[in-house]
């Protein structure tokens, strides 16, 4: 199949449909509007349902219902909208219902700006809602990866019965790149005998009023999370083998760092990049391994935020090496040349 030129938002929407998503509930917000727009056009043609809800809160609860009946379902929004969904996401995690949530992050806090940002890392990875829960969080670095991870997200959600998030930034949503969306994708088949389909009495709920019972549920969830950490952690490395300076960055920012690394290498500075693809579970191992290498002098985390992922990088590095930080925020984008200059100052 030939590659086509896709806008990130449209690629994510089509990938979801090819992965068997037949229900979409959402509410408009920039910079992810092309997702509901595409779903509105496309869902009726594949026998699916698109519904623009009256609010983000309503949309996520519709997702809860559709997921609870065993359907593949998705919602998408951007930062302020995803904040509104947090109560529902916590319920869905507690009730162990599979679904996919897309956040094309914009500048915050509050209504913020509509420009690209990565300042929802804490919210996505540390439990934006209440309770001891996690989402698997995928952070695509380009449009093809956004396609691949969206399709995988539905499988992961079904496999572990949990909400999975695609965390992009405004650039991932708005940019166009060639990508291939497989049309012969075979979704994994899981036992959905838990689903409330009308056949017999089944209950989907996140209320466990007896504390000992809730503790057992939580411990079971933690076991599941440990298994996910073991099996589902994903990352990519770029020129780390001989690197003295290791960048840590995800999403579009990782690509900006790649450009900076190419400039640094042209000047003889040995730089490389570890790019987490799953933000939760966070890939500790490659950072710990790099920190243990004598050749590695320093780490430099680059984010479109005031410094959020850096906390996980520091935990993984375990104090063995210095971890520096460069960030732009509010919707400002770090430019390769600025990252290059900052990296030089760090290595001086």
């Amino acid at each position: 199949m030939a590659k086509k030129l896709y806008k990130g938002n449209e690629a994510v929407a089509e990938a979801a449909i090819q992965a068997g998503c037949r229900y979409f509930f959402g509410y408009p917000i920039t910079p992810q509007n092309e997702i509901p727009e595409y779903m509105a056009r496309r869902m009726p043609k594949v026998g699916g349902t698109f519904l623009q809800a009256e609010s983000e809160v309503a949309a996520i609860n519709m997702v809860y219902g559709a997921g609870g009946s065993g359907a593949r379902v998705m919602t998408s929004s951007s930062s302020p909208g995803v904040s509104l969904k947090q109560e529902g996401i916590s319920y869905i995690a507690g009730a162990e219902v599979p679904c996919v949530i897309v956040n094309m992050v914009r500048g915050g806090p509050g209504l913020g700006s509509i420009q690209p940002a990565q300042s929802d890392y804490f919210q996505a990875t540390k439990g934006g809602g209440h309770g001891d829960y996690h989402l698997v969080v995928y952070a695509p670095g380009g449009i093809q990866e956004a396609v691949d991870l969206t399709m995988k997200a539905f499988d992961t959600a079904d496999l572990y019965r949990m909400p999975v998030m695609i965390l992009g930034d405004g650039m991932i949503g708005q940019m166009m790149e060639p990508a291939e969306i497989p049309e012969d994708y075979q979704p994994i088949v899981t036992d959905k005998s838990w689903a409330t389909t009308g056949g017999g009495r089944r209950v989907i709920n996140s209320l466990y009023i007896q504390p000992d019972e809730l503790e057992r549920v939580n411990l079971r969830l933690q076991k599941k999370y440990a298994l996910i950490k073991e099996k589902e952690t994903m990352y990519d490395e770029y020129l780390t083998e001989d690197a003295e300076l290791i960048f840590a960055a995800y999403g579009t920012t990782a690509r900006i760092c790649q450009s900076a690394i190419n400039m640094l290498r042209a000047d003889g500075v040995k730089a490389g990049l570890i790019r987490p693809i799953t933000l939760w579970p966070f890939p500790d191992a490659p950072f710990a391994a790099a920190a243990a290498r004598d050749g590695v002098k320093k780490f430099l985390t680059v984010e479109m935020s005031c410094g959020q992922m850096i906390e996980d990088v520091k935990l993984s590095v375990g104090g063995r090496k210095e971890v520096a930080f460069y960030g732009r925020t509010g919707g400002m984008i770090p430019m390769p040349r600025d990252v290059y200059h900052y990296a030089l100052s760090v290595m001086r």
Binding site: T252, R255, I256, Q258, S259, N262, M335, P336, R337
Partner: peptide, 8 residues
């Protein structure tokens, strides 16, 4: 393509 944003 590394960085998709053009400055230079």
């Amino acid at each position: 393509v590394a960085a998709p944003i053009v400055q230079e």
